[in-house]
């Protein structure tokens, strides 16, 4: 099993991840737009100031300066809230960071550009403006981009470690604050595009990503108690995903449910639907996540409850698809 034992929490995952990366790689620059503290970039800022660059409260500048830093031979890791780093600076992400590498560009392998969006979806308490329910879909639409939604700090660390060695644009959803330790770092090996079976079963196949995988595992415990047969597949890489693994999982189940901390359009649910419909004749897919209305603010537990994404309601909704 890839899962850890008793549930514990990492209080500030990115502080360690960024510090460890920068001590190992002196060509990495952690960049901020006045949100270092709120993305938990503390030790790099204080102890490795040459590897920290704050561009001020200017997200377009964050990503365009980052693209320049990359062209200068360093590896920028631009950090900000997911809403701002995607919505507010989408053109800079696409044009400045995303057009220098891969098919259709002038360079097979161009500079490495990394952007991390913290507090994605409903993990930010300030409703609407601070919440990013569309970031995965936005970045997924950029040709050659990589999009990763890790479930915990182990996944997050591994995704960033992979990204620094890859040319082109990588967008990673970040975790901050008490982050549950879910994957066992001794057994889990991140591979770009790979999917991970966290629970093996029959009946209902649950496909989840990011916070959605945390929620899926909570619901899974309840489903198990209720005797509802199911499996859980964790899909950290939204793009480029190993499509055959998703297809194989989907066609091995009677029903598929996708769970994501993102709108149910353009993200994981759409991805799974596209893969299965391209083949044809697959199982019905029920997409769970943020609906087509503005989510409330508050704690994530409160918002989940309001949107029917708390463990109990999720379990009931999942069990309901079998009927």
């Amino acid at each position: 099993m890839l899962l850890t034992g008793p549930r514990s929490f990492d209080p500030a995952p990115f502080d360690d991840i960024s510090y460890d990366l920068c001590t190992r790689r002196d060509d990495v620059v952690i960049m901020s737009a006045d949100l270092s503290k709120y993305c938990q970039v503390v030790r790099v800022k204080n102890e490795l100031p040459r590897q920290h660059l704050d561009v001020g409260m200017a997200e377009q500048n964050l990503l365009s300066v980052a693209a320049g830093v990359a062209k200068g031979g360093l590896i920028p890791v631009a950090t900000c809230f997911a809403c701002y780093i995607t919505r507010r600076a989408y053109d800079q992400m696409m044009i400045c960071m995303g057009t220098g590498s891969g098919p259709g560009t002038n360079q097979k392998t161009g500079p490495t550009n990394i952007a991390i969006g913290f507090t994605p979806g409903i993990s930010n308490p300030a409703r609407i403006h601070h919440q990013a329910a569309e970031d995965l879909g936005m970045v997924r639409a950029i040709p050659n981009a990589r999009v990763i939604d890790p479930v915990d700090s182990t996944d997050f660390r591994a995704a960033l470690d992979a990204a620094v060695d890859l040319p082109g644009l990588t967008y990673i959803r970040g975790h901050r604050g008490d982050t549950p330790r879910i994957l066992d770092p001794e057994k889990f090996t991140f591979e770009l595009g790979k999917t991970y079976k966290l629970k093996q079963g029959k009946g209902i196949g649950i496909i989840a990503t990011g916070h959605g995988t945390q929620w899926a595992l909570e619901a899974s415990d309840i489903l198990t108690d209720r005797g509802v047969e199911h499996s859980v597949l964790h899909v950290p890489t939204i793009k480029p995903v190993n499509e055959s693994e998703i297809a194989e999982f989907a066609f091995a189940h009677n029903q598929i449910v996708t769970i994501e901390n993102h709108q149910i359009v353009t993200g994981l649910g759409s991805l799974a639907s596209e893969i299965v419909s391209d083949i044809g004749g697959g199982p019905r897919i029920t997409r769970l996540g943020l609906p087509n209305r503005w989510a409330p603010g508050g704690t994530m537990d409160f918002i989940r409850g309001q949107l029917g994404l708390d463990a109990e309601t999720l379990a009931t909704r999942i069990a309901g698809v079998a009927k």
């Binding site: 620059v29 660059l53 377009q60 500048n61 365009s64 300066v65 980052a66 693209a67 320049g68 830093v69 990359a70 062209k71 200068g72 031979g73 360093l74 920028p76 053109d91 800079q92 044009i95 400045c96 057009t99 220098g100 560009t105 002038n106 360079q107 161009g110």
Partner: peptide, 28 residues
């Protein structure tokens, strides 16, 4: 587009050169 001989950046979406030049200068 970025990487064509003589051109460092994709330059058609206006106003994005100065920041990239500044980032480049900082990195150098």
């Amino acid at each position: 587009i970025e990487g064509q001989l003589g051109f460092e950046i994709t330059a058609g979406s206006l106003g994005q050169g100065p920041s990239q030049a500044a980032g480049l200068a900082w990195a150098l």
